[in-house]
Structures are given as C-alpha cells and as structure tokens.
Write a protein that binds this DNA or RNA. Structure first.
Length: 882
RNA sequence: GGGAGCAUAGCUCAGCUGGUUCAGAGCAUCUGCCUUACAAGCAGAGGGUCCGCGGUUCGAACCCGUGUGCUCCCA
C-alpha cells in the first residue's frame, strides 16, 4: 500500500469515528467490570462549541479512553441543558425579527416557537463534539426538558415543598429588566464600574433654610426614599434627633433615623434610605418600620409611584433628575467614583435590587451533608484549593431564589384559587383534588384554579443530572442507576462550583442518599495569549470548528491539552496548534521509516548489536508508563501529554530509531523489526486518549489487524519496574554521543569527517553493548579501548574529553586541532568540582549536619564526594595528557 | 470591605516530605547542517538575583513573618 506523504486528518477522523461508533465501543451496558462513569456537563441546547467546551470535553474524553484501556466499563453520558434564560432570550429575539412581540403571544404558542427553535438549532453542539472525537454513549443522550426529566424536576419541587424547604415569599431579589425576571445571587456578576457620586441636599423640616446632604450613585432612586439615616454617634447630626426632611422635587416628608450600620466616613455620613431598591436599605427599613415605595416597573422604567418621569428609563431618568436637582438647587456637587455594579450573567444588563414575591428554597439542611462530604474528601476536589471556596460559600449559604419570570422551563407546579389559596401538586388534577377537599364551597362555585406563571431556575433541573440521566424518577431501582451511580469523575469549570457542583451534591445526598461523584476535576478558564478571558464580546475566541477542519481534531486536542496545567488557566495560542501538527507529522514519518524496513527483514539475523537499544527502550517505556499512570491519577494531564510527547519524539525517534536503524539497503533482523513495531504500538496506546485519530490510524497502518483489534479497546499491558542500570546505561550512551558531537563541532569537524575514538574506561561491559551505536552516531570509523589489545593512550594531536569518569580521545585527520577551548572547558569543570568538594566537605565536617541529617542524606553526600573526587582525578589526568 | 491563590529562563510551566553534580522541561532564540523517515526536520549551544526584605535551620526556590505586584471568588 502506498502511504500518503502526510496524515490525512479529515478522512481519518470520519473513518475512525464512524468505525468506533458502529463497533459499539462508545456504548455501555452494566456488566462484571467496574464502571467508570462521567456525566457531561450539559451545554446549552442552543450553544455552539467554543474553547471552553473543547478543553472540558477533551479532558473527559482522555479520562474515558484511558479508563477504557485499563479494564473499566466506561460510560460517558451526553446531553444538553434547556438553559431557560439564554434560550428564551434567543427565541424572543427571533420572534422580534419576525415582527412578533412575545407579550402578545399566548404562553403555549410561544412554547411552540421555542420547541421549533430547539428542534432546529438544539443539539448542534453535540454534533460538534463528535468532530472533536468524544467517545460519548449517544444512546444515553438526555435533555433537561425531556418529559421524563421534566417530571423528575416537578417531583423534587413538590417533595421539597412538602418538606417545608420550598416556600413563597416577598424578598429583595436581583431583577434583570431586560429578561424581566428574577435572578439568583449566583447569576449576578459584580463589575468595577466608573460612576459618579452625587451629593444632594434635603431640606430639613425646621421651617428654616437648613439642609442635610447625602451622597448617592443612583439619584433616580431618590423618588423612592422613605428616610435619611445617620450614625447615632455622629456629632454633626446629633441635633437632628426626631427631625424630618423633604425628598427633593417631590417634597415627601421623611424621618431622619439613626443606626450604627452607617459608615460615618463615607460621603457625608448621611445615607438616603430606599427600601424598595437596595438590600441594605431594605433591611434598615424593616428595622425602623419604614414604608416601601417601588419606583420601578419590571422593564426598568419609572413607575407611577415615582410621581415623576413615569415611563422613562432608569438611566435616562438618572441624567434628567441630576439636571432637575441642579435647577432646584439641591445638587451640591458630583465627583467621580468607582464602585461595583451588578450585571446579569445572561443578558449583561445592570441588575436592579427589587422587592418581589418569589419561590425560595431553604438550603441550610441540604448544605450540611454536602459540605461534610467535600471537607472530609469523600468527594475529592482537584485541585484541592477549591475546597476553601466551597466551604466559604456553603458556610454562609442563603436561600435560593428558584422562580423565574419566563416561559421556557419547568413551570412551577403551584395553583391558586380566587382567594389566593395555594395548592402545590405534581399535576393539575392533584391540585384540583386538594382544592375540592380544602375549600369545597368555593370549588363548587369556581372549579378552575390558576397555575403559577413562572418557571424554575435552570439549575433547579441541572442539579438532578447525575441521577436523572439514569432514569431515577421513574425507576429508582433500575440496574443502570445502581451500576453507574455514584459516577466517577465530574469535569467542570470552577465558575459553576456554586451554580451546579454544590447543588448536585446536595440533591445527590437528599435523593440518592449518596454522593453523585467520587471526584471533581476543575479545569481552568480559557484565556487568550494576553491572558484575557475568551469571550464573544472580545472576539478573541478562535473558530474551533475551522481549527478542527484546518489542523485536525488531534492537533486541536494537543494544543488545548499541552497548555493547560492542572488547576491553572489555559492560555491558548494558535502556535500550539502547529506544535501539535508537527508532532503528528513526526509520528507519521516514524511510521514510514519503520514500515520501510518490513521488506528488508531477515529471520535469525544476529541482533546483539542493538539489544542494548531494545532493552533500554523497553525500560523507558515501562518507566514512563508508570509515571503517566500517576499523572493521570492526579489529573496532571498536561504534564502527562508532555511526557508522552517527549518519550515519542526524543526517546523513540531521536535515540531508539537511530540506534536500531539498519545501514543503507542493509537487512534488519526480524526480531528487531517485530519488537520495534511492538514498541511503537505501545507508544501509540499511551498517546491514544489524547490524540485518538492519528494513533488509531497508525496502529492499523503499521500492521495488518484482525477485525476488532482496534487501539481504542486494546488493553494496556502491565509493566514491571524497569531496571535502573539499563536506564542509566541509555543515559550514559546519550551523554557520550552528545559530548563527542559537541566536541566535534567545537573543533570544526564537519559531519562527514570521520574520526577515530579512543576510550579509557573501566566499564567495559557497558561498551560491549553500546559501542556499535556509539561509533555510528558520532561517525567514528574506528573505536578502540586504551589498555586493550595493546592500545596506548595518545600523546599528541588528540582531542580529549571526559564523560562521567571515562576519558575519551578523538583522533581526526581533518581536524585543525585547537585544544585551548577544550582545556578551558575542562579547567572550568575542574574548578567547579573542586569547589563542590569543598562545600560537601564542609557539610560532612559539620557535626550538626552529621548529627541531624537523615542517614540516607549523609550517605548520599558521601557518594557525591566520592564521585566528585573520581571526576577530579579523571579531569586532571586528561588535562595532563593534552 | 471579607476570603482564596499566584510570583522560578524571553513566554508557558515542573520542581513531591527542606538535602543529587552550577535549578528542570516545552516553546522561542542563536550556530551549523537540504545526513538516503521527517527543513512541519537533524545536530549543538546560550539563557535564571527562584519578586524584595527579615527570620527559622547544619542546610531554604520550598517553612515562618513582612512588603510589593498580579489574579480569582464573595459582599
């Protein structure tokens, strides 16, 4: 078969993905093997693949593929999240483009459009994950608005309501005037913003021309003021006890109250109190019995209660009221001010704190076992630093606002009668039953109940994900749930530790009586080269699908994984794609080289010359394989990839293949060929989880395979601990080769110039195995040992060098021998080692050191000393000979 | 305002319980090579005040204190 010049990624990706899927390698059913389960963090149903997904899902695929090779029954469950706010916003936008106003649509008609949208655009992202090579069990795909899933969300709502944990109440919430819905605290992002601090004076009700000045960044809320507050110990205002003042422009008479909540140093030390529009003011209002005047409509315009600017947007009002205050003589001054402003996570709109009737979930009791599980490492967090964040949040956990004023989502299963009587039930029928029993007379007259208009927070469905994807609600005793739950590892971003991770743990303990996963691995945030978070608004997020098309999924996975150290952010730079592509090319060429030997193999050919190389490579493989297992266990995936990269490029290609390479047109022993193929296979296997396509392709090209012999399911061999002497011998040979090459260059020897190499050593057995490779790699026509077969130490015209404690002499006809550089180098080495001996001697002569240090440390120092002395001796002799 | 974390080569990071022969890797850089798998390559090299200061210790990149700078989370 003619081999392509390069790896053709597009064809290979289509071919192998289809093959894996057709062969059922992605599918999982419970069996005798231990399970390894991951539930994918469901992306938004309308989302498209971005760098964050690429990182997150590459990590999961690596863990899954690796587990598959080590005897586990792996199950990776895909799915999507209905993403209430995000999706509804998109549908509303689409309707607007069609000239349809959501407000004018009945609920069910809007939902029809929403489902149409979902059918059309939903799940694109799952298709895109195939492109990345994700080995997902597609037969288990879930969606958080599927009927079964919907039912489980409703069940949990009803259950928590029965337990008294879910209740309805008026509280200060975060209002998003664009999406026109309440948000949970977690959905609000605080951003440092440049604002203005306005100083506004309020006339006192003393009949005189006296004022009190307050400072505010939100002057439009003045219209909702119901008090001015000062610190009880603030002498400036002590005389105002029991006094009143007037709200500017509307002249409402409001009291001056005293509370030590006030920061005397801030502004003027006097605070305007607007209980309807600030959480702290609200609490003050509660304490002091102040009225609440809500001056905002749900779209962020001023309400009738504001008296002025009715219907005008809040920010326009802010400008206007400043002008009016100035005109009225109430504006004292304004100054620049930087403060934190809350923005909606989804719509990026400035949040308005607002009093509102919402549904709440009390988290206190649910949080207890969830906190304990993480603190005691029953659930391991990687990196562990996130335990602190988690504890901090869980310790101060507040009630969760779970209702959203939206239509796309699970509708709250609560019904009201005309007297506002409340019935919470799984179905309308059940609610009506309750109604008839509770209020038979009313029900006889008015049989219809009105269902709550709101839907539940998206996260109120996502928190059931690890159990509900295995059909917990309908069949809680099913074999899948028993086998796969608790799942093995959750891979997610630290940003959603509260939104999602913490709540899944709570739901897991509450409903399964068991944690949802053993381990959580938090990936970093994807940033660009300059360290900026990748985002649509910055436009710094590369087009992932284009990258896959251009460079291939393997190169993309390589570039993402090579630069994401455990627990740190990923700084993505497209140059890493090139590194990935080069690596693929390197492997491809190595395959071509090895394949090229096939026709030149001969049975029973003496291969003692390269036995050294084979043994060493086997030892390296065993050694690195063990290291890699540790790294993957600790989620040091980036380090793992670097390690395999180096094993393949340096150890295998640069050293091993060069060592066993037969000469031009020379035959090769069958045994060496087979072992080389075998080694290459194992390297591919180690790399496969990271770069699945190219490895599978080469695995099949390098040798004919029977049906079903695919790399993805090939089990990793068990390696025995490698022999340290074998490993050290390889290192020594490398050192020798490098040293001789370096010396050649320093003496202007061209690569083609041959040399004679004389070695003065006591380690003859080492050279017996290695000499052939040494000779070829340094282009020596002859290699001799001093003291053997009458060989003499050279006296003149030689270049001397020292490797470890062996003395080497290069004899070269072509050399313009300049020993000065060489001597200087040796002299420097000599001085260093002499200095080193002094410092080690000091240590060993120090009684405190000898008394305190561990015995093996002392033994090691003694060895260092002896080695250094040997080295000094060798160097001195070589110098003398020059 | 409260909390967490980080600072090691030009860049991105390793460096485990304080103790290995000038502190390691990749990328980048420099030099020489189109050597019959690979120039998307080969060979070789250079590059560090381990953020500053103080302390503990026989011994500190590592532990403690402090200062500076940066990042993230929460209010």
């Amino acid at each position: 078969m003619e081999l392509a010049k390069n790896f053709q990624h597009t064809e290979a990706e289509l071919k192998w993905y289809a093959h894996w899927e057709k062969s059922g390698y992605f599918k999982s059913e419970p069996d005798d093997r231990p399970p390894y389960t991951i539930v994918m963090p469901p992306p938004n149903v309308t989302g498209v693949l971005h760098m964050g997904h690429a990182l997150n899902n590459s990590v999961q695929d690596i863990l899954i593929r690796r587990a598959k090779m080590t005897g586990y029954n792996t199950c990776w469950v895909p799915g999507t999240d209905h993403a209430s706010i995000a999706t509804e916003a998109k549908v509303v936008g689409m309707l607007r483009d069609m000239g349809i106003d959501k407000k004018k649509l009945p609920r069910d008609e809007f939902l029809k459009y929403a489902w149409e949208w979902k059918e059309k655009y939903g799940g694109i992202i799952l298709k895109q994950l195939e492109k990345l090579g994700c080995s997902l069990d597609w037969s288990r795909t879930n969606f958080t608005m599927d009927d079964a899933y919907y039912a489980s969300v409703i069940r949990v709502f009803v259950d928590l309501h029965e337990k008294g944990l879910i209740y309805r109440g008026v509280k200060m919430i975060n209002w998003d005037p664009k999406a026109k819905t309440a948000l949970s605290d977690e959905e609000v992002m605080h951003k440092q913003t440049n604002s203005k601090l306005y100083y506004v004076r309020y006339k006192l009700d003393t009949g005189k021309d006296e004022y009190i000045t307050v400072a505010t960044v939100r002057p439009e809320t003045i219209l909702g003021d119901t008090a001015v507050c000062v610190h009880p110990e603030d002498e400036r205002y002590a005389h105002l006890k029991g006094q009143y003042c007037f709200v500017p422009l509307i002249n409402r008479r409001i009291p001056i109250i005293f509370d030590d909540y006030i920061d005397k140093e801030f502004g003027t030390g006097a605070l305007k109190v607007t209980p309807a529009h600030d959480i702290n003011d609200y609490n003050l209002g509660l304490k002091h019995g102040l009225p609440v005047i809500d001056t905002l409509n749900d779209d962020g315009t001023m309400s009738e209660a504001a008296q002025l600017y009715i219907g005008m947007d809040r920010f326009a009002t802010r400008k206007k009221i400043v002008e009016d205050l100035k005109a009225a003589g109430n504006l004292v001054k304004e100054e620049d001010y930087s403060n934190q402003v809350g923005y909606s996570e989804r719509t990026n709109e400035v949040i308005e704190p607002r009093l509102s009737m919402q549904w709440w979930c009390n988290m206190q009791e649910l949080a207890k076992p969830a906190l304990e599980a993480v603190m005691s490492d029953q659930i391991e967090f990687h990196p562990a630093k996130f335990k602190n964040t988690y504890r901090h949040w869980m310790g101060g956990i507040k009630d969760w606002c779970i209702s959203r004023q939206l239509w796309w989502g699970q509708r709250i299963p609560a019904w009201y009668d005309s007297e506002n009587g409340l019935y919470v039930a799984k179905t309308s029928e059940e609610a009506h039953e309750q109604y008839k029993i509770t209020k038979p007379e009313l029900a006889a007259k008015q049989p219809e109940l009105r269902q709550d208009e709101d839907v539940l927070d998206t996260w109120f469905s996502s928190w059931l994900w690890p159990m509900e994807v295995f059909d917990w609600n309908r069949t809680p005793d099913n074999t899948d749930l028993k086998y796969y739950y608790p799942t093995s590892t959750l891979v997610t971003a630290p940003e959603i530790i509260f939104f999602w991770v913490a709540r899944m743990i709570m739901a897991g303990y509450e409903y399964m009586g068991e944690k949802p996963f053993d381990k959580v691995y938090f990936t970093g945030i994807v940033r660009d080269k300059q360290g900026r978070k990748m985002s649509k608004s910055l436009g710094n997020s590369p087009d992932l699908l284009q990258m896959i098309e251009d460079s291939g999924a393997d190169a993309v996975r390589f570039s993402v994984m090579i630069s994401s150290p455990a627990g740190n952010d990923l700084l993505f730079d497209e140059s890493q794609l090139e590194q990935g592509r080069n690596f693929i090319n390197k492997m491809w060429n190595a395959m071509k080289l090895v394949k090229g030997w096939e026709t030149r193999t001969v049975d029973g050919l003496e291969d003692s010359q390269v036995k050294f190389a084979l043994d060493w490579m086997d030892a390296r493989l065993a050694h690195v394989s063990q290291e890699l297992a540790e790294m993957i266990k600790d989620f040091r995936l980036s380090e793992g990839l670097k390690t395999i990269y180096s094993l393949i490029w340096n150890d295998f290609c640069s050293w091993y293949l060069e060592w066993v390479k037969p000469g031009m047109e020379q035959p090769l022993s069958r045994n060496v060929y087979e072992r080389t193929i075998n080694i290459y296979e194992q390297l591919l296997q180690l790399l496969h989880p990271y770069m699945p396509f190219v490895t599978e392709e080469i695995y099949h090209l390098i040798k004919d395979r029977q049906a079903g012999d695919d790399l993805i399911v090939k089990q990793l061999p068990v390696y025995s601990t490698p022999d340290a002497v074998t490993l050290a011998s390889g290192t020594k040979l490398q050192e020798l080769i490098t040293a001789v090459r370096d010396t050649r260059i320093k003496n202007q020897l061209k690569p083609k110039d041959t040399i004679k190499l004389w070695i003065d050593t006591t380690h003859h057995s080492f050279y017996e195995g290695a000499q052939d490779m040494l000779r070829r790699q340094v282009n020596a026509e002859q290699l001799g040992f001093i003291g053997k077969d009458g060989a003499q130490a050279p006296t003149t015209g030689m270049i001397a060098l020292v490797v470890q404690t062996d003395k080497l002499y290069i004899e070269a006809a072509a050399a313009t021998i300049d020993t000065t550089v060489q001597r200087e180098q040796m002299q420097k080495d000599l001085e260093y080692f002499k200095g080193f001996i002094v410092s080690v001697s000091k240590k060993l002569d120090n009684e405190k050191f000898v008394a305190n240090a561990k015995p093996d440390v002392i033994a090691n120092e003694r060895k260092k000393m002896a080695d250094a002395q040997d080295k000094v001796k060798t160097l001195e002799e070589s110098l003398a000979a020059m």
